[in-house]
Design a protein around this nucleic acid. Sequence first.
DNA 1: TTGTAGGCGTTATCAG
DNA 2: CTGATAACGCCTACAA
Lengths: 344, 344
Amino acid sequence: MRKAEKKSSITLVDVAREAGVSAITVSRVIRTPHVVSERSRRKVEAAVEKLGYVPDAAASALASNRTDVIGLLIPSLTNSVFSDVLRGMYDEAENHPFSIQIGNFRYRPLTEEMLIGKFLRQKPAGLIVAGLDQTDISKGMLRAADCPVIQIMDYDASAEGDMIGFSHYEAGAAAARHLRDRGYRRIGFLGARMDPRTQRRLAGFNDALNGTDDPQQSKRVIVTSTASSVSLGAELLRELLVRAPDSDAIFCNNDDLAIGALLEAQRRGIRIPEDFGICGFNDLEMSKQMNPGLTSIATPRYEIGRLAISTIVDALSSDKASDPTRIDLGFTVVMRGSSARAVD
Amino acid sequence: MRKAEKKSSITLVDVAREAGVSAITVSRVIRTPHVVSERSRRKVEAAVEKLGYVPDAAASALASNRTDVIGLLIPSLTNSVFSDVLRGMYDEAENHPFSIQIGNFRYRPLTEEMLIGKFLRQKPAGLIVAGLDQTDISKGMLRAADCPVIQIMDYDASAEGDMIGFSHYEAGAAAARHLRDRGYRRIGFLGARMDPRTQRRLAGFNDALNGTDDPQQSKRVIVTSTASSVSLGAELLRELLVRAPDSDAIFCNNDDLAIGALLEAQRRGIRIPEDFGICGFNDLEMSKQMNPGLTSIATPRYEIGRLAISTIVDALSSDKASDPTRIDLGFTVVMRGSSARAVD
DNA sequence: TTGTAGGCGTTATCAG
DNA sequence: CTGATAACGCCTACAA
């Protein structure tokens, strides 16, 4: 017989009666206290306290056509990158009355499209999407959405909409230049997953090396669509050393691959950085502990998450259409032992 | 003038009119198709299709006092452990019409208490909480909740409620026995965070070593309340070697610490496994790639996540109170090079 | 600054 | 198996 209890819950009307005002006044005290007189506000607050009133989110959503859910669309939960982004978001969201709901589209544009539709139908307070590479249908939905929409993790001045991220193309180019600056001349690329951001890093990498004196350059690019992992880094290094044995350095898609490659190089007795240089991407916490420390490109993942939430909160609280948010947070090349070869 | 458009959305009533039935019949076709006649169902389905009807979640929640949100309470987003759990949950949830909403209580019991209250007020479809160690108030709320509640990540036959996990006490004991079996006799423990599950692993570890011939045992337990990281593993190993320099093995709280300790041992020229054995916990993907491979205790994280969702789904679909769900998924000691010392 | 009236889209209830 | 009638608790609009 454990059916739902007779709902004896306290409603706005109960509070209003207790406070001697109307229901709408109670509602206003809760949502927009500044438009209510000091006196009413006090009475209402006392009544809320006394009765233990708790607003009903569903009723509010139905009446206002708006929820307090911020939707987040990410391509992967495996990727350690997104755990930092999430951390930033949750840290920031803690100060605000919003809930975060995650949709995982598994690097599949059509799944993303479906999830955008699903989220939008729930009248979210805001939407955060990873990347700038949605399908045209997705882009149309995002453009038409009547809530703030922020794209994160990437930055491209020529793309439309609000965005917080950094340029993956420039990051790839910076990695290539760093390795060249350290004297490496036959530089490879190890890449997994090959999502659009990875591809832009590769493009930047290629362009930066273009016109240098390495005729074998294109043979040194080893990529796969498989998901990234430490083991895969070891595997891709082995493949590189078969296809282009004279390679003297690599830029890896991310630190997982780079760590795998570094450990594999050690097993093969390859001296790092003397004989072979390695640069990773993302700068995970563990990278600096490797022997030698892994050179990597530090990306502002936590900050992106934090800013994404605060931007949405700001957009929601200011009535006027706020300025577009287009923030390039940049990245940093962090040199450590794995590329610290002596240069004359 | 970008106010909300005149809401021209299609409602149940529109569909009902189109199909020539009543609104409630449409509602039933959507929620409980089997109680509607074949004929009505067809007509309704056609109308839904034609009009592009999409149910309104808020209205449904208000009327039924129930949402499709499964709440998840975890102590950390940093911890790589939970990303596997999440992956299992999202993979399983993909087959069902539920959304997952994550609350991060940051290892703070009072934050957890607050979040449980917040979630419960939203009338969730179900609730998943990590661990068995809630405050009394939290436990009371969970007991009184009128939705399925599952505790995950831990298993204790003497605790109440539904749970899916494994015994951390046994895992700690198994690690200690493994190291002794490999001939190590002065075995330390490195621990961070020291949440309740970690403490139970330590208890199991201590009990398993109790009565052995090591008088210094207690000096070899190095713990801190700091969050776990690879760097911290290195640091704790240094501390152990100061406080008990004759130690010949360690069991680490988790693989992050173990990897940090292994890398630090390498820097110090300590031979592993000959002079020093290491056993981690969780068996991360990277652990098998270390040089030497890291012995670890594999835990069924993905499976726990998957089962947690499917258990809730099952409980929701069967009307009758289903049997209690109390599943001990166990763990596995995976021996690799870091403890593979020759034993006579 | 406050209140009145009405409706948001769905589901529970109970009768047919 | 189907339907009429009432909520569900709050918010928008407008008026005072």
